[in-house]
Design a protein around this nucleic acid. Sequence first.
DNA 1: TTATACCCTACTAATTTGGTAGGAATAATA
DNA 2: TATTATTCCTACCAAATTAGTAGGGTATAA
Lengths: 143, 143
Amino acid sequence: MLSKKTKYAINALVYIAKNKHEQPISVSKISEEQNIPLKFLESILTELKNARILNSKKGKYGGYSLNGTTEEIHMAQVLRLFDGAIALLPCVTYRFYERCEECIDEETCGIRQIAMEIRNETVKRLKAATLEDIIEREKILKK
Amino acid sequence: MLSKKTKYAINALVYIAKNKHEQPISVSKISEEQNIPLKFLESILTELKNARILNSKKGKYGGYSLNGTTEEIHMAQVLRLFDGAIALLPCVTYRFYERCEECIDEETCGIRQIAMEIRNETVKRLKAATLEDIIEREKILKK
DNA sequence: TTATACCCTACTAATTTGGTAGGAATAATA
DNA sequence: TATTATTCCTACCAAATTAGTAGGGTATAA
């Protein structure tokens, strides 16, 4: 399951992407429009900024804007940032590798292979889920 | 990520399946062979019994045996039992449906559609991952 | 210079995870 | 029938994670 943090982050990013003509957008605006607790959202956007997914501008009329195009930013990035590894097992992740303590032989572990196949498929789809793709899907669904 | 409970459960099931000629098998035997804390494993096997995935036999020379063939028992069942929903969002699960509180319109939510596609693919693969399949994969990997 | 924003450091309550402890009930066998 | 090996049942618990809140400090445009 995605954490609320991840869901909030994606919703905020999609919102910013949809309103790119009026950037930067303030936290309070996003908070109101997207139903996200203000202070919590503040910390989320700070993390997105530190990860260079967003740009920020301080002071009056400041706010956040995308750092990159809507085709470059995708769900896999956001998910890894807030929820960590995407895979079902720590031993099949690339960035967050860890051995399963209870595992007797990683090389011949049957569920490891299955977890790897699922991860590959999932990551492929999450990378394809760019902001552009999400917005496009919503347009089609609205018809 | 799979919880330890789920991993322990799968390892125990695979172990029981591999040794089906000497059933029933006691918790202590599985605990030793599979590196799983005894008391914790006890509670896991009780849950598997309550879910009718295992049979139990009380008293001396008692223990657990599979309730069903190795082709019938698969990872999706076990995962749902211990970790709940498989999907990334509560609004795309069949058995554990819940609305996302923050969601503005479920019908036109772009990430919902993506989550649904990922769930379908993942469930398909987890259902194909029967005990038989896991054991077969391990045989091939050992060569 | 003032109002509007982001930035930073703490704190916290509730839930989940990964167990442990102790004994009662049951069944095989000597 | 006593012993022993096993499952079954209830209760407890510590650590980690999640989903926030509180309270200012700091930068900047008008």
